[in-house]
Protein backbone atom coordinates (compact mmCIF):
# COMPACT_ATOMS: atom_id res chain seq x y z
CA UNK A 1 0.00 0.00 0.00
CA UNK A 2 1.34 3.41 -0.92
CA UNK A 3 1.50 6.12 1.71
CA UNK A 4 1.52 8.93 -0.85
CA UNK A 5 1.35 9.33 -4.65
CA UNK A 6 5.05 10.24 -4.51
CA UNK A 7 5.92 6.56 -4.71
CA UNK A 8 4.13 5.98 -8.02
CA UNK A 9 6.76 6.90 -10.59
CA UNK A 10 5.78 7.29 -14.25
CA UNK A 11 9.08 8.25 -15.79
CA UNK A 12 12.62 8.45 -14.51
CA UNK A 13 15.89 9.62 -15.97
CA UNK A 14 18.74 9.77 -13.50
CA UNK A 15 17.93 12.21 -10.73
CA UNK A 16 14.81 13.58 -12.39
CA UNK A 17 11.66 11.61 -11.99
CA UNK A 18 8.05 12.37 -12.72
CA UNK A 19 5.88 10.82 -10.06
CA UNK A 20 2.12 10.81 -9.75
CA UNK A 21 2.14 13.94 -7.58
CA UNK A 22 3.87 16.04 -10.23
CA UNK A 23 1.88 14.58 -13.10
CA UNK A 24 -1.50 15.11 -11.43
CA UNK A 25 -0.50 18.60 -10.29
CA UNK A 26 0.31 19.46 -13.88
CA UNK A 27 -3.01 17.99 -14.94
CA UNK A 28 -4.86 20.11 -12.40
CA UNK A 29 -2.94 23.22 -13.46
CA UNK A 30 -3.81 22.46 -17.06
CA UNK A 31 -7.51 21.98 -16.29
CA UNK A 32 -7.70 25.15 -14.19
CA UNK A 33 -5.74 27.35 -16.60
CA UNK A 34 -7.32 26.13 -19.83
CA UNK A 35 -10.78 26.01 -18.29
CA UNK A 36 -10.69 29.57 -17.02
CA UNK A 37 -9.10 30.80 -20.26
CA UNK A 38 -11.86 29.18 -22.31
CA UNK A 39 -14.56 30.62 -20.06
CA UNK A 40 -13.15 34.14 -19.91
CA UNK A 41 -12.47 34.29 -23.67
CA UNK A 42 -15.75 35.97 -24.49
CA UNK A 43 -17.24 37.54 -21.41
CA UNK A 44 -20.38 39.61 -21.72
CA UNK A 45 -21.74 42.36 -19.52
CA UNK A 46 -25.28 42.00 -20.80
CA UNK A 47 -28.07 40.02 -19.24
CA UNK A 48 -27.56 37.16 -21.69
CA UNK A 49 -24.55 35.25 -20.43
CA UNK A 50 -23.12 31.83 -20.89
CA UNK A 51 -23.72 29.52 -17.97
CA UNK A 52 -20.00 28.97 -17.54
CA UNK A 53 -19.53 32.69 -17.02
CA UNK A 54 -22.32 32.59 -14.44
CA UNK A 55 -20.74 29.77 -12.49
CA UNK A 56 -17.30 31.41 -12.60
CA UNK A 57 -18.77 34.69 -11.35
CA UNK A 58 -20.52 32.83 -8.55
CA UNK A 59 -17.26 31.16 -7.51
CA UNK A 60 -15.24 34.38 -7.61
CA UNK A 61 -17.83 36.45 -5.75
CA UNK A 62 -18.32 33.68 -3.20
CA UNK A 63 -14.58 33.45 -2.49
CA UNK A 64 -14.41 37.23 -2.25
CA UNK A 65 -17.23 37.33 0.29
CA UNK A 66 -15.57 34.69 2.43
CA UNK A 67 -12.25 36.60 2.30
CA UNK A 68 -14.06 39.76 3.34
CA UNK A 69 -15.71 37.97 6.26
CA UNK A 70 -12.30 36.78 7.41
CA UNK A 71 -11.35 40.41 7.97
CA UNK A 72 -9.71 41.52 4.72
CA UNK A 73 -11.70 44.45 3.40
CA UNK A 74 -9.87 44.97 0.09
CA UNK A 75 -10.60 41.43 -0.97
CA UNK A 76 -9.77 41.90 -4.64
CA UNK A 77 -6.13 42.40 -3.74
CA UNK A 78 -5.94 38.99 -2.07
CA UNK A 79 -8.30 37.14 -4.40
CA UNK A 80 -5.48 35.97 -6.68
CA UNK A 81 -3.53 34.24 -3.93
CA UNK A 82 -6.28 32.93 -1.65
CA UNK A 83 -8.61 32.02 -4.51
CA UNK A 84 -5.88 30.01 -6.20
CA UNK A 85 -5.16 28.15 -2.98
CA UNK A 86 -8.82 27.30 -2.51
CA UNK A 87 -9.46 26.34 -6.13
CA UNK A 88 -6.36 24.15 -6.33
CA UNK A 89 -7.14 22.19 -3.17
CA UNK A 90 -10.84 21.97 -4.05
CA UNK A 91 -10.26 20.68 -7.60
CA UNK A 92 -7.64 18.26 -6.27
CA UNK A 93 -10.43 16.84 -4.10
CA UNK A 94 -13.21 16.93 -6.67
CA UNK A 95 -11.19 15.00 -9.24
CA UNK A 96 -11.07 11.98 -6.91
CA UNK A 97 -14.30 10.86 -8.60
CA UNK A 98 -12.17 10.10 -11.68
CA UNK A 99 -10.87 6.50 -11.45
CA UNK A 100 -7.10 6.14 -11.32
CA UNK A 101 -6.60 9.64 -10.02
CA UNK A 102 -4.88 10.28 -6.71
CA UNK A 103 -5.07 13.73 -5.16
CA UNK A 104 -1.65 15.44 -5.24
CA UNK A 105 -2.58 17.04 -1.91
CA UNK A 106 -2.23 13.55 -0.41
CA UNK A 107 1.52 14.01 -0.69
CA UNK A 108 3.38 15.89 2.02
CA UNK A 109 5.55 17.72 -0.54
CA UNK A 110 2.54 19.40 -2.16
CA UNK A 111 1.00 20.52 1.11
CA UNK A 112 4.34 21.75 2.45
CA UNK A 113 4.78 23.75 -0.75
CA UNK A 114 1.33 25.31 -0.34
CA UNK A 115 1.98 26.06 3.34
CA UNK A 116 5.35 27.63 2.45
CA UNK A 117 3.53 29.89 -0.02
CA UNK A 118 1.36 31.07 2.90
CA UNK A 119 4.47 31.36 5.10
CA UNK A 120 6.07 33.71 2.55
CA UNK A 121 2.90 35.56 1.58
CA UNK A 122 1.90 36.59 5.11
CA UNK A 123 4.97 38.79 5.80
CA UNK A 124 4.88 40.02 2.20
CA UNK A 125 1.34 41.32 2.47
CA UNK A 126 2.05 42.59 5.98
CA UNK A 127 5.08 44.61 4.88
CA UNK A 128 3.21 45.85 1.84
CA UNK A 129 0.37 47.09 4.02
CA UNK A 130 2.14 48.62 7.02
CA UNK A 131 5.83 48.92 6.16
CA UNK A 132 8.86 46.92 7.30
CA UNK A 133 9.29 48.64 10.67
CA UNK A 134 5.69 48.39 11.73
CA UNK A 135 5.43 44.79 10.59
CA UNK A 136 8.57 43.73 12.48
CA UNK A 137 7.33 45.63 15.52
CA UNK A 138 4.18 43.52 15.48
CA UNK A 139 6.31 40.53 16.49
CA UNK A 140 7.00 42.18 19.83
CA UNK A 141 3.38 43.23 20.09
CA UNK A 142 2.46 42.91 23.78
CA UNK A 143 6.02 42.91 25.15
CA UNK A 144 9.50 42.03 23.97
CA UNK A 145 9.28 38.73 25.86
CA UNK A 146 6.76 37.46 23.32
CA UNK A 147 9.23 37.72 20.41
CA UNK A 148 10.46 34.07 20.39
CA UNK A 149 6.92 32.77 20.91
CA UNK A 150 5.60 34.81 18.01
CA UNK A 151 8.34 33.42 15.77
CA UNK A 152 7.64 29.86 16.97
CA UNK A 153 3.92 30.29 16.29
CA UNK A 154 4.71 31.52 12.79
CA UNK A 155 6.63 28.30 12.07
CA UNK A 156 4.34 25.89 13.91
CA UNK A 157 1.17 27.12 12.22
CA UNK A 158 2.83 26.59 8.83
CA UNK A 159 3.64 23.03 9.88
CA UNK A 160 0.09 22.53 11.17
CA UNK A 161 -1.34 23.86 7.90
CA UNK A 162 0.73 21.38 5.89
CA UNK A 163 0.18 18.32 8.09
CA UNK A 164 -3.57 18.98 8.48
CA UNK A 165 -4.23 18.97 4.75
CA UNK A 166 -1.85 16.04 4.14
CA UNK A 167 -3.32 13.97 6.95
CA UNK A 168 -6.89 14.50 5.84
CA UNK A 169 -6.30 13.69 2.19
CA UNK A 170 -3.96 10.78 2.95
CA UNK A 171 -6.32 9.25 5.51
CA UNK A 172 -9.18 9.41 3.00
CA UNK A 173 -7.17 7.53 0.37
CA UNK A 174 -5.86 5.09 2.99
CA UNK A 175 -9.32 4.25 4.36
CA UNK A 176 -10.65 3.65 0.83
CA UNK A 177 -7.67 1.39 0.14
CA UNK A 178 -8.25 -0.62 3.31
CA UNK A 179 -12.01 -0.90 2.69
CA UNK A 180 -11.41 -2.06 -0.89
CA UNK A 181 -9.59 -5.08 0.49
CA UNK A 182 -12.21 -5.84 3.17
CA UNK A 183 -15.64 -4.90 1.77
CA UNK A 184 -15.22 -4.02 -1.89
CA UNK A 185 -18.91 -3.68 -2.71
CA UNK A 186 -20.58 -0.47 -1.48
CA UNK A 187 -18.60 1.01 1.39
CA UNK A 188 -15.67 2.44 -0.65
CA UNK A 189 -18.18 4.59 -2.54
CA UNK A 190 -19.66 5.90 0.70
CA UNK A 191 -16.18 6.68 2.01
CA UNK A 192 -15.38 8.43 -1.28
CA UNK A 193 -18.42 10.65 -0.73
CA UNK A 194 -17.26 11.37 2.82
CA UNK A 195 -13.77 12.08 1.46
CA UNK A 196 -15.24 14.59 -1.00
CA UNK A 197 -16.97 16.38 1.89
CA UNK A 198 -13.89 16.49 4.13
CA UNK A 199 -11.74 17.51 1.18
CA UNK A 200 -13.96 20.48 0.39
CA UNK A 201 -14.06 21.48 4.07
CA UNK A 202 -10.27 21.23 4.20
CA UNK A 203 -9.93 23.38 1.08
CA UNK A 204 -12.19 25.98 2.69
CA UNK A 205 -10.25 25.84 5.95
CA UNK A 206 -6.87 26.10 4.24
CA UNK A 207 -7.93 29.22 2.37
CA UNK A 208 -9.75 30.78 5.33
CA UNK A 209 -6.82 30.18 7.68
CA UNK A 210 -4.45 31.79 5.18
CA UNK A 211 -6.89 34.73 4.98
CA UNK A 212 -7.00 35.02 8.78
CA UNK A 213 -3.19 34.97 9.01
CA UNK A 214 -2.90 37.64 6.32
CA UNK A 215 -5.61 39.69 8.04
CA UNK A 216 -3.70 39.50 11.32
CA UNK A 217 -0.48 40.59 9.60
CA UNK A 218 -2.00 43.45 7.63
CA UNK A 219 -4.05 44.95 10.46
CA UNK A 220 -2.59 48.41 10.92
CA UNK A 221 -1.50 48.98 14.51
CA UNK A 222 -3.39 52.16 15.31
CA UNK A 223 -5.85 50.50 17.69
CA UNK A 224 -4.64 52.77 20.51
CA UNK A 225 -5.65 55.88 18.56
CA UNK A 226 -8.99 54.73 17.26
CA UNK A 227 -10.60 51.59 18.67
CA UNK A 228 -11.92 49.11 16.17
CA UNK A 229 -15.61 49.61 15.56
CA UNK A 230 -16.22 45.88 15.31
CA UNK A 231 -14.74 44.09 18.30
CA UNK A 232 -15.97 40.73 17.04
CA UNK A 233 -13.38 40.88 14.25
CA UNK A 234 -10.44 41.08 16.62
Amino acid sequence: MRLSPDELIFWQSGFFKINATIAFTWGLMFVLAVGSTLITRNLSTELQRSRWQNILEMIVIGIGKQIEEAGLHHWRKYLGFLGTLFLFVATATVFTIVPGYEPPTGSLSTTVALALCVFVAVPMFGIQEQGVGNYLRSYTSPTLIMLPFNIISEVSRTLALAVRLFGNMMSGAMIIGILLSITPLVFPILMTALGLLTGMVQAYIFAILAAVYIAAATRVRNSKLQPDTNPARQ
Binding site: M1, L3, A160, F166, M174, V201, I208
Partner: peptide, 25 residues
Protein backbone atom coordinates in the same frame (compact mmCIF):
# COMPACT_ATOMS: atom_id res chain seq x y z
CA UNK B 1 -19.28 24.37 13.25
CA UNK B 2 -17.72 22.78 10.17
CA UNK B 3 -14.59 24.87 10.42
CA UNK B 4 -14.31 24.15 14.13
CA UNK B 5 -14.89 20.44 13.62
CA UNK B 6 -12.18 20.27 10.99
CA UNK B 7 -9.77 22.11 13.29
CA UNK B 8 -10.56 19.76 16.19
CA UNK B 9 -10.36 16.77 13.90
CA UNK B 10 -6.90 17.77 12.73
CA UNK B 11 -5.48 16.91 16.17
CA UNK B 12 -6.75 13.36 15.72
CA UNK B 13 -5.35 13.41 12.20
CA UNK B 14 -1.92 14.32 13.58
CA UNK B 15 -1.83 11.19 15.72
CA UNK B 16 -3.12 9.16 12.77
CA UNK B 17 -0.26 10.50 10.65
CA UNK B 18 2.21 9.55 13.36
CA UNK B 19 0.88 5.99 13.54
CA UNK B 20 0.92 5.71 9.72
CA UNK B 21 4.56 6.83 9.79
CA UNK B 22 5.26 4.21 12.46
CA UNK B 23 3.78 1.46 10.30
CA UNK B 24 4.64 2.40 6.71
CA UNK B 25 7.63 4.74 6.88
Amino acid sequence: LFVGLAMIESTAIYSFVVSMILIFA
